Amino acid sequence: MTATVVHAPGLDDVPAAVEAALEEFLDGKARTGADDNLRQFTELLRGLLSAGGKRLRPVLCCCGWLAAGGGDLAPVVPAAASLELFHTFALIHDDIMDRSDTRRGHPTVHRTLAARVCGRLGLLDAESFGVNGAILLGDLAMVWSDELLHAGGLSSARLAAARPVLDAMRSEVMYGQYLDLLISTDLDSGLEASLTVARYKTAKYTVERPLQLGAALADGDERTLEACSAYGLPLGEAFQLRDDVLGVFGDPSVTGKPRLDDLRAGKHTALLAIALQQADRAQARVLRALVGDPRLDEYGAAAVRGVLRTTGALDTVERMIRERRQQAVDSLERSPFPQSVRAALYQLATAVTVRTS
């Protein structure tokens, strides 16, 4: 799935425009790098950005701009591209916390950095170097995201209007990440806890706030910002629920990530919470014995997937996805958005919930 499925004036061009903005920004950073090591650091970031990604947040930011009457998309493209840099920061750190080996079909940043020094350092020291370097590169991506936002030429008044939305987004994703870590220590934390994580880690960060950021940059009123929330929160939850399903049942050759990571890490998703609620004793023993086991293999994962199916957890989550998508779509009829933006967001609602990656 790519964001180019939307069909409002100018929106088809957003992914390419964002790519160009990111390339120009990173080219400038590479030219001013003090030495080869810093330039290689920048190229590592470029590699992750160019390896794929849906560019969903930039497209939604541009939708918000149009929804609030912003007109020509050119002024908002750097701000939209800055969201992609911030997302790259989040991915790098998320992969460290999840101990993931691959991202978008390639080695994660911390694995790449570790491999570069493994020949002259011991394995443990190389792994430590990789993690430390990836933390720094993630931090750099976050700093540069703010720099790109402010280098785009938008007026100080527009940037000031958008600051509360941006501040909220940054805080919410950190809070959601922490909650995700916290509930993964307790398999019995329940469905509501997993949905709270989905709301803060994904729904607000991925859909609601990018929409609101674009609207705020275009001087959108309170009614427009509220309509962004009415659409963004349920769709963002549906997006995360689809991610939960793909994390266990997806095809790694399509998703670009192993489908054992979430199970090995003991991710307390809605899928797992519902299965534990519905499981009989034998099924619960399977889940408690295998989920969270860092040595889990495909044989054990198949047993977990069997329980997720037979308890009805998978079907329940699929129904929750459909319900939230419909809630988001229904909200568009009550929104003050132009019809072209409604049409784009309607198609996007299907694209992000019926997907294989």
Score class of each variant (00 low, 15 high):
Glu192Ala: 14
Pro9Ser: 11
Gln240Ile: 04
Arg264Leu: 05
Ala351Leu: 13
Arg319Gln: 14
Ala115Arg: 14
Leu287Ala: 06
Thr206Ala: 14
Ser331Thr: 09
Arg223Met: 02
Ser184Val: 01
Gly119Asn: 12
Val354Lys: 11
Asp244Thr: 07
Ser145Tyr: 02
Arg120Cys: 02
Leu49Ala: 13
Ala282Val: 10
Arg116Ser: 12
Val197Thr: 08
Asn37Met: 11
Cys118Lys: 14
Arg242Glu: 07
Thr4Tyr: 05
Leu314Trp: 10
Leu154Arg: 13
Pro15Phe: 11
Met142Phe: 12
Ala301Leu: 03
Arg99Val: 03
Lys257Gly: 02
His87Ser: 05
Ala157Phe: 01
Lys54Val: 06
Leu213Ile: 03
Val329Tyr: 03
Glu84Met: 04
Leu166Thr: 09
Thr88Tyr: 03
Ala81Val: 02
Lys29Tyr: 06
Val354Gln: 15
Glu172Asn: 07
Arg39Lys: 15
Ala343Glu: 15
Leu213Asp: 01
Tyr175Asn: 07
Ser171His: 11
Ala301His: 07
Val248Ser: 08
Pro75Phe: 09
Arg259Pro: 00
Leu56Arg: 07
Gly119Cys: 01
Gly53Val: 05
Leu148Asn: 06
Thr269Phe: 09
Arg55Cys: 09
Arg31Pro: 01
Thr202Asn: 04
Ser194Ile: 03
Leu136Asn: 12
Tyr200Asn: 12
Leu11Gln: 12
Gly53Thr: 10
Val143Asp: 11
Thr350Lys: 08
Asp95Lys: 04
Ala160Glu: 15
Val143Leu: 13
Ala279Trp: 07
Leu148Gly: 05
Phe249His: 14
Phe89Lys: 08
Asp243Gly: 06
Tyr205Gly: 09
Ala238Trp: 01
Gly153Leu: 05
Ile135Ala: 09
Lys204Cys: 00
Val6His: 05
Trp144Cys: 03
Arg305Glu: 14
Ser82Ile: 02
Asp95Ser: 08
Val291Ala: 06
Gly292Met: 09
Pro107Tyr: 07
Ala303Ile: 00
Phe86Pro: 01
Asp27Pro: 03
Gly312Ala: 09
Ile321Pro: 10
Arg223Glu: 14
Asp98Ile: 03
Thr112Ala: 10
Arg242Tyr: 06
Leu345Glu: 00
Pro210Cys: 01
Phe89His: 15
Gly47Met: 06
Gln283Ser: 13
Leu332Pro: 09
Arg288Phe: 00
Arg57Lys: 12
His106Ser: 07
Glu43Cys: 02
Pro9Arg: 03
Thr269Val: 09
Arg309Glu: 15
Cys118Thr: 13
Trp144Thr: 03
Leu182Glu: 15
Asp297Val: 03
His106Ile: 11
Tyr175Gly: 08
Ala230Thr: 04
Leu38Phe: 12
Pro336Ser: 10
Leu195Ser: 04
Thr311Leu: 08
Leu49Arg: 11
Ala218Phe: 10
Asp95Pro: 06
Val354Glu: 15
Pro107Gln: 07
Leu181Gly: 05
Ala126Glu: 02
Leu56Trp: 10
Thr196Val: 08
Ala30Cys: 13
Ala160Cys: 04
Asp36Asn: 08
Tyr178Asn: 07
Ala34Gln: 12
Asp297Met: 03
Pro164Leu: 02
Ala313Gly: 10
Thr202Phe: 02
Ala17Cys: 08
Glu226Pro: 00
Arg158Ile: 00
Arg242Phe: 01
Val304Tyr: 07
Pro15Trp: 12
His106Asp: 06
Met169Gln: 14
Leu213Asn: 01
